[in-house]
Amino acid sequence: MTVKFLAARRRNPAVAIALLLLALVVVGGAYSLASNAQPAVAAMGSQTQVEEGKKLYLEGCSSCHGLNAQGTKYGPTLIGVGAASVHFQVGTGRMPLAAPGAQAVAKPPAYNEDEVAKMAAYVATLAPGPAIPSAEQVDYADADVAKGGVLFRINCAQCHQAAGQGGALTQGKYAPSLMNATPTEIYEAMLTGPQNMPVFSDETLPVEEKKAIIAYVNELQQAPSPGGLSLGRLGPVVEGLFLWTAVFAALIAAAVWIGIKAR
């Protein structure tokens, strides 16, 4: 009945306009839904938290990032980097910087979790930016590991290496090993793109896919090595090194032993 009704009128000029309108509504609606999916403004911390965070910021960060976080020639502006960026950089010990170099090195953090949260809350008030992911966002228990593996090889392996052992970039920069990265850190790194890493926003890599990648990295961290010693999973160069040192030493030793026995 309906089919017949539609089929009879499918060449009506009004149909084109109606379809166009429908398409616009669908696309626009979908876009607004998608962009609403990520709250643009990070959840604000309490007023006292922000003020204490500002105090910590002025003490520890402002010499490079400026008194108003506007940035100086020693460090970039922090306006709009969001709480996630602060949590990642300070929480992994990359900030404050120990020494200028090709890239900030991860080290034991200088601030405790509480202080990091305060500074993150302060930076989040400066301008909207990505928030620290919630526990629910990084819960990868139900994620698809195999899909995560595919996504990891497409998006991450060219710098972090297929086994997540890290790799070299130009001029002393590098993609660090992921073997000690926590789910939250991985999520924040994807969200904020620290140092040389590109940003993988929730638009390009939806939350589900981030979870899948986290699940795969976790698999790389946890999975046993079925073939025996893994040799650091660094590839054929290390295998070759092992061959020329350990294996060949054993074979030559055996040859010498057999040679000596004859005398």
């Binding site: 090889r153 497409i154 392996a157 060219q158 710098c159 972090h160 290496q161 297929a162 052992q165 890290g166 790799g167 070299a168 993609a175 660094l234 590839g235 054929p236 160069v237 295998e239 070759g240 061959l243 020329w244």
Partner: peptide, 12 residues
């Protein structure tokens, strides 16, 4: 063909 891993090397 669209993928590559860092640290890709041949055998020794």
């Amino acid at each position: 063909p669209d993928q590559v891993s860092a640290g890709t090397q041949p055998d020794w």
